[in-house]
Design a protein around this nucleic acid. Structure first.
Lengths: 221, 221
DNA sequence: TAGATTGTTAATCGATTAACAATC
DNA sequence: TAGATTGTTAATCGATTAACAATC
């Protein structure tokens, strides 16, 4: 860390570390459920699937939440990481595109338990209005402005076909959403200040295929 | 590139590059569909959402498939990348866990068009035997050994609840699968030589939440 | 105190980027 | 030839890792 004042509690956390914090959070939750109150960096690292040097380095960006010679208090560390990520309160989320994938996302129970709350399901097809999925009413896409404003939505999920995704993203940005999780297999263009993350099934499979192909040809591991 | 013999056509492609090749592939397909036969690194980079220096560096690991002063032949480059990734033939794939997500995956049309073929849908619940999803019969999980052997399956997709995922992975590995795409929110332990990639909705959302939280607090972008 | 384990340092490794020589 | 654009170099930046001093 270069410089820190007491007020800006934690700055400059590397992206690679940010991406692992949710993994640590989950591992800690799992330890709590097993009734484990204290753990070493070695134990937590194993539960999270990383090595302990990386874990300690990552945690060092947040502060000093362990005790030398002892380890970490599971609940305390869990809370500190949750606070750092920002999931001590719920984030309202909208899902756009209620096809097969949208259905699956709406029904995903991990949402609620991990700091997110689906406030609306939106679909471009007006005929679907009033339909209910996972106890949430499907509403017309045009209502997005109202819904975002009324609920203070900052995060949007795109589960539409590829051809519709850019328009949906534009509309999301226009009504104030500044973080987008995109499941549509297309590159989105958004203004600076808007974060986009993508989840792409066929890209993941192709990465596996690349390595698989090399295994098959007798390459060294 | 350190050293290459004529026979080992392309070695030592960095992981970061491998992860982007599918993105280039998609961008090239899209250019073809637009009737564009030739493109510069700048144009392709824009379509893929990266900068042109990175694109050229990435392509340089595969070989020299462009023409200085001219650019790339879209179809030719597309084929070369597809060959490098290994998606010039179809890869047989099994999906385990036919809940909401499994349904969505089974119906995902991008599978077929991008080098993969779902040969079986497997579910632990014997009552679901005979059910049909996306024109594919749901079969009991126990038949996995037969199915993998008969179809030469190397890639498995796990779409089960978290608590079942490790058992499914063990069973996949036991019958010869060496690449796993895991949608269950849990860390999988597998032997060396087996590749696992994970897709995790709540982790992606938490990464967005972290950045969103900082925006809200007036941090610089 | 002795043993254990954190938090940090410093070295290494890998990825990105800008610039430009090569060359169509 | 002149203009355009690739493929490569080298510098920079960020991530990982091992080792260990600090300290409970």
């Amino acid at each position: 860390m270069t410089s820190r004042t007491p007020t800006d509690s934690a700055r400059d956390i590397p992206e690679a570390t940010v991406a692992r914090l949710p993994v640590y959070l989950r591992a800690l939750t799992s330890l709590t459920e097993q009734g484990i109150a204290t753990c070493s960096s070695e134990e937590l690292a194993t539960a999270a699937g990383v090595n302990s040097a990386k874990l300690r380095k990552d945690l060092s960006y947040l502060g000093s939440y362990g005790t030398r010679g002892v380890g970490y208090d599971v609940d305390y560390l869990r809370y500190q990481i949750a606070r750092e990520i920002g999931v001590t309160q719920d984030w309202p989320v909208v899902i756009v595109g209620i096809g097969n994938l949208g259905h699956a996302l709406a029904n995903f129970s991990g949402f609620r338990s991990r700091g997110f709350r689906v406030v609306a399901l939106l679909d471009a097809d007006p005929a679907r209005k009033g339909e209910e999925v996972a106890g949430i009413e499907v509403r017309p896409f045009d209502e997005i402005d109202t819904i975002v404003r009324e609920n203070g939505v900052a995060i949007g999920v795109i589960a539409t076909p590829a051809h519709a995704a850019q328009d949906v993203a534009d509309r999301m940005v226009a009504c104030g959403i500044s973080s987008i999780l995109n499941f549509a297999p297309t590159v989105l263009t958004v203004p600076p200040g808007v974060d986009v993350r993508k989840v792409d099934l066929s890209i993941e499979l192709q990465i596996l295929a690349y390595h698989e192909q090399r295994k098959a040809h007798g390459e060294p591991l």
